[in-house]
Design a binder for these strands. Structure first.
Lengths: 126, 126
DNA sequence: CTGTATCCCCGTAGATACTG
DNA sequence: CAGTATCTACGGGGATACAG
């Protein structure tokens, strides 16, 4: 788990992008939303991510104050992830980004279909 | 100039992040703002970026429809960059991201000062 | 079930030198 | 002035196997 070294400079935007500028973080935020999800649920919903990477991303988001990790000492183990207030505050901005992309979308070749948000996801995405 | 391969899947958010999820693109958008800037002016304002990388980023942003490149056939050569409508539409979202980061900012060690936006930049930044 | 531990690939950034 | 052309290094992301 190497700390993201992007944006060592501390422009607000630079810091913001370092917190969510990676490949998966914005998606993880959008998938968690306002509920609690177990590790396995996250892995299933974003089924193209490897478990190692998912773990890494979650750890970084945790130390960036975006997600809360709750570990239940049970057998079998259970861990639930949810968004912090900071993470929740990010949601509307991410929705704006989606709108922006959708609005200015240029038809692209070889697109795979994928509806991550905008509709409730209760099954696999991506 | 290799096309960004992040986010091959086509979730709106994925596509959005592929258009501005790189290290410099959001900053470039914020620096250009609503004016035209010459290549050299951009390079000076973001003085820690190498010219090669700046060129690469601008080319990608051009093909993503974020910036307009105007080349004047003069000597010495002059090239002006400005934001497209799509790029301009991104500005308010980036400002929101800045606000978000600023609001939830956790005091960090070894910060370098840098005020990229929020105040008018007419000199070097970063 | 929820992760680690390794290993490897490949893209991106960066430095430097050169060009029309 | 506004880029190219190379070359290199780094590190994130992915695959796989294993562990508590």
């Amino acid at each position: 788990m190497v700390k993201n070294e992007l944006m060592k400079y501390s422009c607000p935007l630079g810091k913001a992008m370092s917190a969510l500028g990676s490949k998966w973080k914005p998606i993880i935020v959008l998938v968690i939303k306002d509920r609690k999800l177990r590790f396995g649920e996250l892995a299933v919903r974003i089924n193209v991510i490897s478990r190692k990477v998912l773990t890494d991303q979650l750890r970084e988001m945790q130390s960036d104050g975006l997600v809360i990790r709750e570990e239940f000492k049970e057998l079998p183990p259970r861990v639930e992830y949810s968004l912090t207030e900071k993470g929740l505050a990010l949601l509307p901005i991410l929705y704006l980004l989606e709108e922006w992309e959708t609005k200015y979308h240029v038809k692209d070749l070889n697109e795979q279909d994928c509806n991550l948000v905008g509709k409730e996801i209760e099954k696999t995405v991506v």
